[in-house]
């Protein structure tokens, strides 16, 4: 599903150049549940941004579901983000003036799907994440866990190839973190590829594969102990 070969990325700020990714080689198959771990500054956010087509890379090859993702125009990037990728963020990033349903339905707006149809699909997904009764509420009326579930529903609505989650439990307490991870596992159980960036070991431990990053390279690619039979 995801194929990375020799991905390099550096940021130029003024006269200094910061080499963030120093040759990432990674293959993530369909239906995997992967966590990316590493200390801050290790390049894991940059990696996620590149995977999510929010940022470009300097050299190497990135193929998503077989499509080359090099030097995309803004328009192409927007198209692939919309069609192939579902984002879940630490700070939820819901639009505060839109109801839960409208937030979930938003990606379909950019696919020119009719209002009626996309709201129907959004309500179905909200039901799946257990928020049917909260469909008309604004994000400000929801708890953190509920907000993240709305965000996950929004990521799922386009039936993407991969879900990219950036510290999805970072703003949640351990109990709600658990609930959110359950949803990710359930989604993954239905065949969805999920990549979670986290620094929490409990979260990583619930995934099927942990990729450890340090100083711009993958230092370890392992299966969590608890799952090892």
């Amino acid at each position: 599903m995801i194929f990375l070969q020799n991905i390099e990325k550096s940021y130029v700020t003024g006269h200094q150049s910061l080499h963030v990714l120093k040759g990432i080689n990674l293959r993530i198959g369909e239906g995997e549940l992967v966590s990316v771990m590493g200390p801050s500054g290790s390049g894991k956010s940059t990696l996620l941004n590149i995977l999510g087509l929010l940022d470009g890379f300097d050299s190497g090859t990135y193929r998503l579901a077989g499509n080359p993702m090099h030097k995309l125009s803004e328009k192409q990037g927007a198209y692939y983000r919309n069609q192939f990728i579902g984002f879940v963020f630490q700070s939820f990033n819901l639009l505060p003036f839109k109801s839960a349903t409208e937030n979930v339905a938003l990606p379909l707006y950019y696919q020119k799907i009719s209002r009626k149809k996309r709201n129907m699909m959004a309500e179905e997904l909200l039901e799946r994440v257990g928020l049917r009764d909260w469909a008309t509420h604004l994000p400000s009326e929801l708890s953190g866990g509920q907000k993240q579930r709305v965000a996950i529903a929004r990521a799922l609505i386009t039936k993407p190839k991969v879900i990219l989650a950036d510290e999805p439990t970072g703003a949640l307490d351990s109990k709600t973190s658990e609930e959110v991870m359950e949803i990710f596992k359930e989604v993954n159980g239905k065949g969805m590829t999920v990549v979670i960036v986290t620094h929490e070991n409990q979260v990583a431990a619930e995934t099927k594969r942990i990729i450890r990053l340090n100083d711009g390279i993958i230092v370890k690619d392992e299966v969590p102990q608890s799952i090892v039979p």
Partner: peptide, 8 residues
Amino acid sequence: IRKALGAK
């Protein structure tokens, strides 16, 4: 957010 969700 809109851009991340695929706004051209």
